[in-house]
Design a protein around this nucleic acid. Structure first.
Lengths: 113, 113
DNA sequence: TGGGTATACCTAGATTTCCTATGTATTATT
DNA sequence: AATAATACATAGGAAATCTAGGTATACCCA
């Protein structure tokens, strides 16, 4: 009866990250972890070892654009913007998610959102 | 822009299988694959290589009870019932799913179900 | 009566995604 | 001077699913 959120997160992290960056206009990794946790009331606690490599992967795929920014009050941050291609993929992921949630409720009633 | 349903399915297969068997009272593997596909309008196409080992795993964990049944019109089937322990886990999985879907929509608007 | 199709179950190996554990560096706080 | 918070990163491993094969039964039809 252990924590199951990691399993459910599987395959949805891309969408969440792209979606958050899209909403925030620009964001860096550490910020995204905190913001996800805050917005979900602690439900999503994305691990650093998961997020940082993922951001680099999305950047390499051209879905995000990253730039180093110096800060007066701490270490450098890598700030990300979503690209047009990233926005396209985000829309696709959102649509997939809607279809998926719909399909789950067609299989049997879960009383989900 | 490939098919993404496999990734979304990840971590939810247990719930779907337990839930379907619970609704159907009794079901065998092949039937579950067809029924999931039918109910979801083809969205879920669970692979045999995924399902049969999963059913055995759930059986070993005491969430399902399986029995071989001979059929006059085809090969033997392994029919499964959900156990009280299985029902308990199913309720937990459903609750996790609800929390998860809720959390996704707290992070950003997906307009899902 | 032979071949194709649908039914029904199974295993092995690969892939993907995420986690744990650990490391580095900077700045603020105490 | 030490600790905490911020910020990023890598290596190794675990878990779930897929692909690609295999076996066997019964029905249909030419």
């Amino acid at each position: 009866m252990n924590d199951y959120s990691a399993n459910l997160l599987h395959g949805n992290t891309d969408m969440l990250i792209l979606g958050l960056i899209d909403e925030l206009d620009s964001a860096h990794g550490y910020q995204l972890i905190k913001e996800m946790e805050r917005r979900s009331n602690g439900f999503f606690r994305l691990k650093e070892g998961t997020l940082y490599p993922l951001l680099r992967k999305l950047e390499n795929e051209g879905l995000l654009e990253g730039k180093w920014k110096a800060a007066s009050n701490g270490p450098e941050k890598r700030c990300y913007l979503i690209t047009p291609k990233g926005k396209e993929i985000l829309d696709y992921r959102k649509a997939s998610w809607r279809d998926f949630a719909k399909a789950i409720n067609m299989v049997f009633q879960t009383d989900a959102v």
